[in-house]
């Protein structure tokens, strides 16, 4: 079946990625991440001074602020803040900077579906730019199940999402292949049946709508595959930035 989004031919094709780090002058780290027509800008300040009220004696206080495209922040933005903060808290080694504050501001720039996934990827790039100590990196991909054809579409646009029976957001860390080496969980062998496999590395999963258990695991499987592409992209982005910094010191 062809997609509503005419720029793509396959159901498992992602929109083109774009990212840019160190955009903002006065924050400690910043990044923009785009999935096609969806774009999120994220800034990180920290480790900075914390208000006495929010101070934690053994770790950094993590504050996430989400700003919508237009208007004042509402319930949706508060939910996004909470989702991102709760997924990042185990990832950030906040014990290394006790009694400090880490403020993450997320600004939606363009919305064409999958804002939560775009925000996750923008946040991780901004945290890398700020040099915040992390346990691992993450990559996020959204998928949906079409109401008519029951087909799984990766990275849907707003237009496609209007026909969704259910949508699923997944976040995976980059340690999954390590785990497979250690024999804990086999994740990315092609001949393995869909589902069951990839859940070892899930950092966050959010689903809305009606779906069966099997459909959920299929979605997890496809999103896991796609998240590998996001991880690869993040690695390339960081590599490009470092090459620019090192060009003077190399002969």
């Amino acid at each position: 079946m062809s997609r509503l989004d005419r720029t793509r031919t396959s159901a498992h094709q992602l929109r083109p990625f774009f990212s840019s780090q160190n955009l903002l002058n006065r924050s400690d780290g910043s990044a923009q991440f785009d999935f096609g027509g969806s774009s999120v800008l994220c800034s990180v300040v920290g480790p900075a001074e914390v208000k006495l009220r929010d101070e934690k004696l053994d770790k950094a206080t993590i504050e996430v602020v989400a700003r919508p495209l237009v208007g004042l922040p509402g319930v949706k933005d508060k939910a996004l803040e909470q989702n991102i903060r709760e997924s990042l808290e185990p990832l950030i080694l906040s014990g290394l900077h006790p009694r400090t504050m880490l403020q993450i501001v997320i600004q939606t720039m363009k919305d064409d579906g999958c804002i939560l996934s775009t925000a996750f990827n923008a946040v991780i790039l901004a945290l890398l730019d700020a040099g915040i100590p992390l346990k691992s990196i993450l990559g996020s991909v959204t998928c949906m199940i079409d109401a008519q054809s029951s087909e799984i579409l990766l990275d849907p646009t707003t237009e496609e999402l209007s026909r969704a029976r259910s949508t699923h957001v997944f976040v995976f860390d980059n340690k999954s292949s390590v785990q497979s080496e250690q024999g804990k969980m086999n994740v990315d062998t092609d001949d393995q049946e869909a589902g069951t496999s990839s859940l070892a590395a899930v950092l966050f999963s959010d689903s809305t709508g009606m779906f069966t258990e099997q459909e959920y695991f299929e979605c997890a499987h496809f999103c896991f595959k796609a998240s590998q592409a996001v991880h690869g992209f993040i690695r390339t982005a960081v590599q490009k930035k470092l090459e620019k910094e090192y060009q003077q010191t190399q002969a």
Partner: peptide, 27 residues
């Protein structure tokens, strides 16, 4: 494991390993 993005450096003397990374906030 590395906890920051950067260039892995190593000296054989003393078997020292570190990651050279860039950031703006001083610790």
């Amino acid at each position: 494991a590395a906890v920051k993005a950067g260039v892995l450096k190593h000296t054989a003397v003393g078997n020292r390993w570190w990651v050279e990374s860039n950031q703006r906030r001083y610790v």
